[in-house]
Simulated scan of single mutants.
Amino acid sequence: MKLFDGLPVECKARADFAKTGQEWVFFLKPTVLRKAAQRLYKDGWFVEDVLALDTTDGMLVVYHFDKMTKPGRITLKVLVSGEEPTVPTISDIFQGADWHERETCDFHGVVFEGHANLIPLLLPAEEDQRIQPPLLKTDKKRTGLKSLMSLYETETCSAAVEALFADEPAEEAPAEG
């Protein structure tokens, strides 16, 4: 996939469409998200949905894109701090992202910087509702990205993203003595 050539992607992976419904998965830094969205828009893609996963590694914001003329989903993934999850909006690039970003803010507390209308969509607008979004997990319920997904067939991957999926080092056995 040459659509993102020249963009600093954290990870580029080919997926098995028959198993996942995706053809490509890209991990991006938040600073690259808008440029990637602009390229998708210019190439005729549309946004299907925006969602978030609350993990031990942070808040993973996931964007699914598809194309009417050649179906084959592209997934963009942006990992941000779980403490202050903030990503730039793409709602001014893809009008269809407006609803999805507002819903993701409602339920996960992700702030979409630059969104013109980031008011509650489905939940009450009371201030106390905004303090603890209902789909945030407790520490005991959170799991790591490694247990939630596969990197598929990676073509390129930064050390930071690879570390999220690396096997834990084996603990050394105590010395006998």
Rank of each mutant, 00 (worst) to 15 (best):
L3Y: 05
L3H: 04
F4M: 11
E10D: 15
A15D: 12
D16H: 11
T20A: 09
T20W: 10
F26R: 06
F26S: 01
T31A: 13
T31R: 14
L33F: 08
R34I: 09
A37I: 08
Q38M: 13
Y41T: 09
F46R: 05
V47W: 00
L51I: 06
T55W: 01
T55G: 03
M68T: 10
M68I: 12
T69G: 13
K70S: 12
G72W: 01
G72P: 06
R73Y: 05
R73K: 14
I74T: 10
L76I: 08
V80P: 03
S81W: 04
E83F: 07
E84H: 11
P85G: 01
I90F: 02
S91T: 06
I93W: 03
D98F: 02
E103P: 00
D106R: 00
G109W: 00
V111I: 15
F112M: 02
P120E: 01
P120N: 04
A125S: 11
E126S: 11
E126F: 12
E127Y: 11
D128S: 15
R130V: 10
Q132T: 15
P134N: 04
T138P: 00
G144L: 02
L148S: 01
L148W: 06
V161R: 01
L164V: 10
F165R: 08
E168A: 15
E171L: 15
A173D: 12
P174H: 05
G177I: 13
